[in-house]
Computed example of a mutant assay.
Amino acid sequence: MKNKIIIFAILLFSANAFAQKNGLEINGWTNVNTFKCSHPRFKNSGSVYSFTGNQLPNISVSVDDFDCRNKMMTNDFRKVLQSDHYPNLNIRFLEFKKSNSNKFEAVVEVKMMTVARKYSIEFSLYNNSLVGNKRLRFSDFKIVPPKKMGGMVYVKDELDLVFSLETKD
């Protein structure tokens, strides 16, 4: 029950933050603090997505365009995802269906570096945008979460992929 409340709060916050716009964030935790890495270029892309027929979205974004609002954190994020060798993060919709009036279910493939994983994600319709959130793990993509200061500060394995996609009516 607690997890559902947290997910609902994240979706509600994300829906308000991304209202009628595209948005892509990766949120995570360290043993000391939290971090949020957003993708301003995707947010300002002006893209509008269609979820009808068999032409589902295939989104590719540059890892170097993520901004964690802290230069050192941004550089560490890009280094962990090896942006010099794997410049893009890819999100491909494989299935999409309506489950009730404002809820949708999708199967999405997320590819980081050389690893692609499929996830079921629930989306909510809010102001002509589909808002979704999925808890992932660095280890899902064979990434060891980074440590600093001899392991005194470490990034937890879990992270949230939060996104909003402006849709056509």
Rank of each mutant, 00 (worst) to 15 (best):
R92V: 14
D64N: 13
H39L: 05
A116S: 15
Q82E: 13
R137H: 07
A106L: 08
D67Y: 03
R78S: 07
T34P: 00
F18K: 08
D76N: 13
I7F: 06
S120K: 15
L56P: 07
Q55T: 09
P40H: 00
V131G: 02
P40M: 02
S60F: 01
F138G: 00
E95K: 14
E166R: 15
I143P: 01
K103Y: 15
L81F: 11
R92N: 14
D140T: 06
A9N: 10
N27Y: 02
K111Q: 14
V80S: 09
K148H: 03
A116R: 12
L161Y: 01
K147E: 07
M73W: 08
S47R: 15
K71P: 00
V48C: 04
K134Y: 06
A15S: 14
S50L: 07
I91C: 12
T74F: 10
I143F: 01
G28T: 01
L11I: 13
V48M: 07
I143G: 03
M1P: 09
V80L: 10
M1L: 12
G132M: 08
V61Y: 02
G46H: 01
Q82Y: 04
D65H: 09
K103T: 15
E25K: 10
K97S: 14
V108M: 06
E166K: 15
K71D: 12
A9C: 11
S83M: 04
A17Q: 13
R69I: 00
I7G: 01
M73D: 09
L130D: 08
V110T: 04
F138Y: 06
R92H: 14
V155F: 08
